[in-house]
Design a protein around this nucleic acid. Structure first.
Lengths: 179, 179, 179, 179
DNA sequence: GATGAATGAGTATTCATTCAT
DNA sequence: AATGAATGAATACTCATTCAT
């Protein structure tokens, strides 16, 4: 699913890639939707963990470095799940499935990275290392949106998010956020 | 197609929505892919036109206002074609169809908005109203990526891109770009 | 229909070839089947006429020359209607349509060429120029079958029935029929 | 396919005849064209084998008996594949599919029966049991063409090639080929 | 007399899912 | 625990035919 996207990942293709036959899939997953979220959850769990440490970094090093390293790590994981997040956006069935999985494990609305990032920004604001007139939640949401868009940017090119591109984006944000 | 996305827009559904039968579709479009690009082209043409005037605005008003109004107009059109751009990202068949339509009329690689925006930014750099150390093309690409991501942000929520959210983003960018 | 065969001759293709639109076809023919038989009848009428003169040739020239020239003329017409005869053999609907058109104007069973050829052969038998132990009707049927098969033979090659090939076949038959 | 011809053998009809649903077909054949050639290959393989023994018969028994029995066996198999050979002639798609299957297993151009029969005829010519002035390949082609045409002859009648008809044809040919 | 948009039944093919073995 | 044949609903697309203009 991560390699070819959701719609190209037919049960036949998945079974073939796994070296089993189609029927076997249904011994491990009740249906394809469930399998999809299982595939999405792994990288996402890591993402959550990565960000848990961020708020504690407030005041250390520089804001630019903290943000830059956090976003760069996030970018690597994101590459894995961008096809899956696109699938959710494209397929209404998947979208509603996520909605019913309360506290939906993917996306922005569950208090994971956006919340942690907002906490970090708020702390830096109080330390006077960031301008205080911006709502930290909204700023966090903008930062993560930009990251997501950059992950989308070269869909057919190198395949990887160019680090220089990411650095420029972080630089722009950090200057914009500076007091 | 704009309402439910490409894959959910089956020929049956489209025919039903148009109040005709499936066969009738093929009197107007040779195939579904062509129909898709016809649906995408209209709003995109407008987008191109919207941006053509931007470079001439360099030096007038303020950078913040110029960018803000340009991006806000763009955001409205974008809402129409976001499902279609997602479809291209998701469906390899569409992606290759766009590739064969040289000067591909959708997306960022054809010298439309990204090119106009970069021209504008370069002009403002020369006028000293923007910091000069950033590559204008890369900056333009970041700005448009952010806009795209914000258009994606609330995929199921209000439906529209909140103007306040957009304003904050523009503010962040303009400060980041300031000399 | 003669050019591309029955199944490839869609109403759209026929209308295009005729320089009119599809609807116009139905002002001239009630349906496609009728149009098919109209296309087949022309060449077939000629074939009938060609053979009417054959019985009177008995006793003149040589059997080989008479048969050879008759079959060669027939072969030319046959080329026109082979695709149509194939269509009748392939499509049960056409076959039954011909059956209902009594004295069906195409095919071997209605007393046209086969009957004339049999008459000619019988006359030559009585003149002692052909062996008398063969049923003339059956011989006629074999001769025409061979002609049909030769017309089929090079379906993709030169396009035309090679005259040398036809000559050899006639030679074989004439020798086989000699007393 | 052998019963109603290729075009009438829709996937739905085939599935129904096989007592399964349409989807099941595609577990056994990748597409309809492949299925067609699978249906055609069986009888054709037999035909090839039947003829392999023919050249060795030169000089034994009589030419008439050898040819007669070979052609009679061939005629029985031919009845099975005549609808399929007609389909290839009628449908350009099938024709090109066969062309791409090099050494195309159907038809006359691959050195099967025509080649074997020509070898046999050449041997008999050297033994003086057949006239020597005919090109054996051309004679073989004529003989097989005649057989094919006879198999076509009563497309709606008894269904089987009448043996007496075939005997007469062989008699005609043998006499025509006699020295 | 001609048009061409509309029809509706039909085509081959795909795919997630089931179940006897 | 795994297989793989079977399912059945769905998909994009075709075509002979109709009919208001």
């Amino acid at each position: 699913m991560r390699e070819v996207g959701y719609s190209r990942a037919t049960t036949r293709a998945i079974a073939h890639a796994a070296g089993v036959t189609e029927g076997t899939i249904y011994r491990h997953f009740p249906d394809k939707t469930t399998m999809f979220f299982a595939a999405a959850l792994g990288p996402h769990e890591e993402m959550l963990v990565q960000f848990d440490a961020l708020p504690a970094l407030a005041g250390t090093s520089t804001v630019a470095e903290n943000l830059s390293s956090a976003l760069r790590r996030l970018a690597q994981l994101r590459a894995d799940i961008v096809p899956l997040e696109l699938a959710i956006m494209t397929d209404p069935e998947l979208a509603s499935a996520r909605a019913t999985m309360q506290a939906g494990p993917l996306g922005a609305g569950h208090g994971g990275p956006p919340e942690r990032l907002a906490e970090y920004l708020a702390s830096e604001q109080q330390l006077g290392r960031l301008r205080a007139d911006l709502d930290p939640h909204r700023a966090a949401s903008i930062i993560l949106a930009l990251l997501f868009a950059l992950a989308l940017q070269p869909p057919d090119a190198s395949g990887d998010l160019s680090p220089a591109h990411l650095d420029d984006a972080v630089d722009l944000l950090v200057r914009g956020l500076a007091p």
